[in-house]
Each structure stands twice: as C-alpha cells, then as structure tokens.
C-alpha cells in the first residue's frame, strides 16, 4: 500500500529538494506508524524517530500532532498522510 509523506521539517531540508518534499512511498500492508518512520530514516540515513521523541520534529497524522512515544504502534491504512514539520510558527 501507499503512504503519502511530506518532509517539511527544516531538519530534513538537505535530504529533499524544495519542490520534492512531498512524495509517496510503498509500505507493506499492516504497517504501523513506526514502520513508516523507520523506512524514511533508512532512506535519509538519519534517525527520524529520535527527532520525534525529542519533539524537535512533529508528525501530523490523522489531523493531529502525534505523541510518538505513545502512538508509534498505530496501524496505518492505504493512502494516509504523514506530515513532518518543525514546530515553529508563522507570524
């Protein structure tokens, strides 16, 4: 199945081009949130889970900011969005 990923966090800016931050990845059926995070971590060679645990990066999933330590095992469905942001705000 597919997961739509948006790597918008500033911490990842060197890994993705400015116009290519949003893309789709293939994930096995039955995947959990942490599987997507691990897959991306491998692809970027950086530990995204650590960024999420330290709250330097926030994952918006199902319209809410996930608490990764609690929600990492949530099972996902086909086509869901994973938006990674730096929790800083516009004025």
């Amino acid at each position: 199945m597919k997961a739509k990923v948006s790597l918008l966090a500033l911490q990842f800016k060197d890994f993705v081009p400015p116009d290519g931050k949003t893309f789709e990845i293939d994930v096995p059926c039955g995947s959990r949130v942490c599987d997507v995070v691990n897959l991306l971590s491998e692809r970027l060679s950086t530990n995204i889970g650590e960024f999420l645990m330290s709250k330097k990066v926030v994952l918006l999933f199902r319209n809410r900011a996930l608490q990764y330590e609690k929600d990492a095992d949530l099972e996902i469905t086909d086509g869901e969005n994973f938006i990674f942001i730096t929790p800083l705000i516009g004025g």
Binding site: L8, L10, I83, I85, G90, G91
Partner: peptide
Amino acid sequence: LWHTYGTLMYTTQGYEI
C-alpha cells in the same frame, strides 16, 4: 532555526496542512 528562517520557514508547512 528562528534566527535563520524566522517566520518565513512556515510557508511550505502552512501550505501542506
């Protein structure tokens, strides 16, 4: 991050949501 980007960093994040 604030020093480097200020509020300007929000545009792409704001767009996506």
